[in-house]
Amino acid sequence: MIQRFLPLIVTMAVLVVGFLLCAAQFPNFASLRVVGNLLTDNAFVGIAAAGMTFVILSGGIDLSVGAVIGFTTVLLAVLIEQAGIHPMVAFALALIVGAGFGAAMGAVIHWFQMPPFIVTLAGMFIARGVSFVLTTDSLPINHPLYSDLNEVAWRFSGGGRLSLPAMLLLGVFALSMLLAHWTRFGANIYALGGNRHSAELMGVPVARTTVGVYALSGLLAGLAGIVFSLYTGAGYSLAATGVELDTITAVVIGGTQLTGGYGLVLGTFGGVLIQGLIQTYITFDGTMSSWWTKIAIGVLLFVFILLQKGLLAVWSDRDGDPAEA
């Protein structure tokens, strides 16, 4: 059992050690306020990363995530500000569009047997392009519900607050873990990532699972877009550029293998927070260029990939152990 959880343990250990190091350097770091902000600031990346985890576990990839987030912010701004639709209705529409877009990509991937990389790359261009067609400007959203929603928070003593985006982030991860480990859909995703051919022979509904996985990723990208729109209070067609890569990074640092089949949703949560932690550290430091975040994340990603390779090698040594029979 330990083997399965080892990558998760490593991720969480890095997170805890990193947090303790930061706390040792900056006395104000270890506070509920910092933790609350960490969750709020990384909510949209985290929500999208949860969806990406399922896609990667199934052996695929979804490059359209960032573009779908950007598109959602633009769609919300246009619907709320220009069409005068109530934000709640607009949110529902955005989620439906996100899920439908993902499902369409999943369908193309399955029935035309296209590589997910290409299909979702095309999806990325389409989503980004449509955003630009809708508007090239940054459209502010001034609906009163936005400021109301931004006030929703669970406040702690000492100025810490668990904002609505943070709550959504935690809720999404709780539900994702349930979905991954306690439903047949979750088991089918792991099966697909383990070996597509075997999964098919074992009666896994491959079509339904593939479409479902990309629809889920699209849905969560839509939700991430809503959160991002709340966070920035605007719709902008260039928003969240490159976020798909941040989510893939979070998934890999979280111990999920890019080839699919192995990994845990909770690990992605750790991966998101590690990235956020590095960002927060550099903000606290104040003198470092924010590009150090990228360098640190790059190094970390590299280390984690090597670690996975090492773990895999150890596992395959165990293969064919006749003593088990």
Partner: peptide, 25 residues
């Protein structure tokens, strides 16, 4: 062997027909 090496032995035995309780595996 057309099973899934990444899943547990129990999951391999019951994939697609897992015992359910309250809608969950």
């Amino acid at each position: 062997v057309n099973l899934l090496p990444n899943l547990s032995v129990a999951e391999n035995l019951f994939l697609g027909r897992q015992p359910m309780r309250f809608g969950l595996v």
